[in-house]
Write a protein that binds this DNA or RNA. Structure first.
Length: 268
DNA sequence: TCTGACCTGCGA
DNA sequence: TCGCAGGTCAGA
């Protein structure tokens, strides 16, 4: 389930494979993934272009290819895979990129929730909230966002129009590390809790990036390996297990149609 | 503001 | 065979 750390890991691993490569061919097996152009237009605009760089904005990957910018959202199960001589052709490959050097790159998406756009100028996502590890997010800005919308903390962290990049797994982990119950109202946090929340948002996301993200089902790195962060998660998918910090038991509750994991003994 | 649909594989 | 997993968005 690609959240910010998984997308950033993907970006870092794509760079040495793609940067400076010129696109020789693109095969699109699932045109439905393309959201603002058809397959012909996508191929026409990109074949012959060189990938100059890859940016990440929250959960979006922005490829810089001269004057055109393909943008990819990995959805729930989207992954980029580099070609491996020893492997069979993987299932659910929807887009194949071939470079002039002969290297290949595959976009695989088992559940087809991923999306691809093509922009002819650098894209601006007006509805997207602040990238939580960008310098734009300060303690003061976080406080403003918390006061702006009266909801519970779990839904706040997952609201992509406020903070964009945190998903279900890291929302539970961030709240656990902050000692804040997911049910708490955003306006109920005091200054000390807001500062701690700010620190833990950075700490948890950076920790996950350092460990190449979390693999539970579909996610794998560009090199075809699993992430390592699932080893360190303290709440996600641990309902009924003992808390790693106190004597409590990890509970599970559905909030906003998503499973939420927490410990009542050390989150208040 | 909230809920359900989209989608496929896995485990009970 | 059915429920569950969850990011996003349309519709209520």
């Amino acid at each position: 389930m690609p959240e910010l750390p998984e997308v950033e890991t993907t970006r870092r691993q794509l760079l040495p494979i793609c940067k400076g490569e010129t696109i020789a061919d693109i095969k699109i097996h699932q045109p439905v993934l393309l959201k603002n152009c058809d397959a012909e237009e996508f191929r026409y605009q990109l074949i012959g272009r060189t990938i100059d760089d890859i940016d990440r904005l929250s959960k979006y990957l922005i490829f810089r290819c001269g004057e055109v910018f393909p943008v990819v959202h990995l959805g729930m199960s989207g992954v980029f895979l580099k070609d491996r001589a020893d492997s069979k052709y993987p299932k659910h490959i929807h887009v194949e990129w071939t470079f002039e050097s002969g290297k290949q790159l595959f976009y695989q998406d088992m559940r087809r929730f991923g999306k691809i756009w093509l922009y002819k100028e650098y894209p601006v996502f007006e509805k997207l909230g602040i990238d939580p590890i960008s310098q734009t997010l300060t303690v003061e800005r976080l406080n403003e966002l918390l006061q702006k919308r009266r909801t519970n903390m779990k839904l706040f962290l997952m609201d992509q129009q406020k903070l964009s990049g945190i998903g279900n797994i890291y929302a539970s982990e961030i709240l656990f590390e902050s000692g804040i119950l997911p049910h708490r109202e955003t306006t109920s946090l005091d200054d000390k809790e807001i500062k701690l929340l700010y620190d833990k948002i950075h700490e948890v996301l950076q920790w996950a990036i350092d460990n190449f993200g979390t693999t539970y089902s579909a996610y794998q790195t560009v090199n075809g390996e699993a992430g390592k962060m699932q080893t360190y998660l303290k709440t996600y998918q641990r309902a009924g297990d003992s808390c790693k910090r106190c004597d409590g038991i990890i509970e599970k509750e559905v909030m906003g149609s998503r499973s939420t994991f927490f410990c009542r003994s050390c989150q208040f």
